[in-house]
Design a protein around this nucleic acid. Sequence first.
DNA 1: AGAATATACTTACTTAGGTAAATACTTTAG
DNA 2: CTAAAGTATTTACCTAAGTAAGTATATTCT
Lengths: 144, 144
Amino acid sequence: MKKLLFHEVHQKSRLSIKEVNEALKAFGLYSSQWSILFCLKQFGSMTQKEIWQYLSVEAPTITRTIARLEDSGWICRQEGKDKRQRIVYLSHFAEQKMPEIEYKIQQVERALVSGLTDTEQEQLLVLLKKITATKFTVEDGMNG
Amino acid sequence: MKKLLFHEVHQKSRLSIKEVNEALKAFGLYSSQWSILFCLKQFGSMTQKEIWQYLSVEAPTITRTIARLEDSGWICRQEGKDKRQRIVYLSHFAEQKMPEIEYKIQQVERALVSGLTDTEQEQLLVLLKKITATKFTVEDGMNG
DNA sequence: AGAATATACTTACTTAGGTAAATACTTTAG
DNA sequence: CTAAAGTATTTACCTAAGTAAGTATATTCT
């Protein structure tokens, strides 16, 4: 019944995204947009590559989300010294709004894990990190 | 740093979907299609409502995925006694292919959790289940 | 029986994420 | 210095999942 594990991971992922989206509605933001803003708050200006590497998503995903954030005035972009790069940073408006948004997100996230003790939360994180993609051949898998 | 927890859940969810999709490529299937086939294998014929309730997704998501599975010949649908309902079941072709697909999926899932002991896998499942959506008011959240 | 309500599913539209291929700029090799 | 290879981003197209609203059938209430 290991199927249940991934089913559960998937469901909790969707659940938390749903809750975060609900909380962000008031700001006109979505969860994935938030994750980029959070990233820029931490690291200051970044290239798009730095963003997608940090968030472990593909480049085109960042292109799209960044475009929306730029259109709605949350971030600014400028050309890098390397003209292929586009350097991204928070707009003044975003800088001002961040504390309020962060507070709201913290509330939601606390609510989601309110059934777990601090220790359990740490354990959960540790266990999740042990899930990894491994090179896997048909031959390797035959002995089970 | 509780942010990390949801980030991790989200990432592992994407990772496992990616791996499962890769494994299903040979069958011309995608992970969410597989989850419906798996469901039908377990329960036999089901209404679409039963499927989306079991998988905890919204009805329109199932409508789309079911439509694709029907087009590609994996499932059949027939009208229920209640004419609003559509009863879904595996095609003969799907019935035949299921064991092979299940075996492949099991390989992938085993590989993903190969870094965890059986006990850790159980623990992980227990901890994940403790993540829940809770009614949450601004007032409730102020004391923290 | 007929009107109002509820239910099952669908349609239209949105964000999120993936792959493959194109574009534009940089670096490297000859 | 120019051709080839590499890199950063974008475009095009696919599945997945959500919300809101529409349609068709069932049920309920007067």
